[in-house]
Nucleic acid binder design. Structure first.
Lengths: 122, 122
DNA sequence: AAGCGTTATGTTAATTCAAGCATATTGAAA
DNA sequence: TTTCAATATGCTTGAATTAACATAACGCTT
């Protein structure tokens, strides 16, 4: 720090915010949706996934159906009834899409942090 | 193109969407706001800028006041009355912030496009 | 003093998006 | 045939954000 450094970090008080999503045919889904898919993959039920995310079954189911309709692809296969009551699994397409989105997101996270620092930390 | 290329571009039908913004003290402003600042810089009045963006003077003025309050800095200097009726100019701080946001945005645009292509065009 | 164009601000209407409530259905097990 | 856990959907509220309406004040010009 030398004389004339008053302006140093004048802009460092700001933070960058952002949201990314995928879209196709007007159907838009972002972080929350793919997080939901992860939970379905892990829990084996929509009910369990919804619970884990603190949302209603109704909301979770609605998101999935909307995405399937707009994107024109099956994202889950469901069983209803039976000894466990039922269950839900991701289709292979949904699994791959989830993986691609995750990698996409990770790289974007890194790059935005870098670009922001380059422009606002001095 | 060779045999077995059926899967080619299976994911290219998707597009990436995103939004970026700056925040400080809970005050959030993105593309629309900085676009408004540009128009003020160019038009010399809030009225003209609002008109150019197809929004009401009331809405434009509200955005600016909210940002100034949350961010704790003056973004515009205004004259009221007089031969032209009045006018508005950006403060030096607002001009610099606008420039930094623009550069930030340009670089993010480029990088996201690149990362998306890398993950979804094959 | 009257007019014009602009800034300044409170108040209310409208629209959109998400949350919550209610209910029906399914199929194995007891 | 009753129970149970889960899927499947319609419908109603509510919250939050945005748009629209209505004035007031200012200062130069005519």
């Amino acid at each position: 720090m030398v004389a004339g450094d008053d302006k140093q970090k004048k802009w460092a008080c700001f933070n960058a915010g952002y949201k990314i999503w995928l879209e196709k045919n007007g159907g838009v889904q972002g972080d929350g949706f793919f997080q939901l898919l992860e939970h379905i993959q892990q829990a084996g039920t929509i009910t369990g996934a919804a619970e884990a995310m603190g949302m209603s079954y109704r909301a979770a189911w609605g998101k999935i159906k909307t995405a399937e309709k707009k994107w024109g692809m099956a994202l889950v296969t469901t069983r209803v009834g039976g000894e466990t009551g039922g269950g839900t699994r991701l289709t292979p397409d949904a699994s791959e899409l989830l993986g691609r989105f995750r990698r996409f997101r990770e790289e974007v996270d890194r790059e935005i942090a870098r670009i922001f620092t380059a422009n606002f930390s001095l």
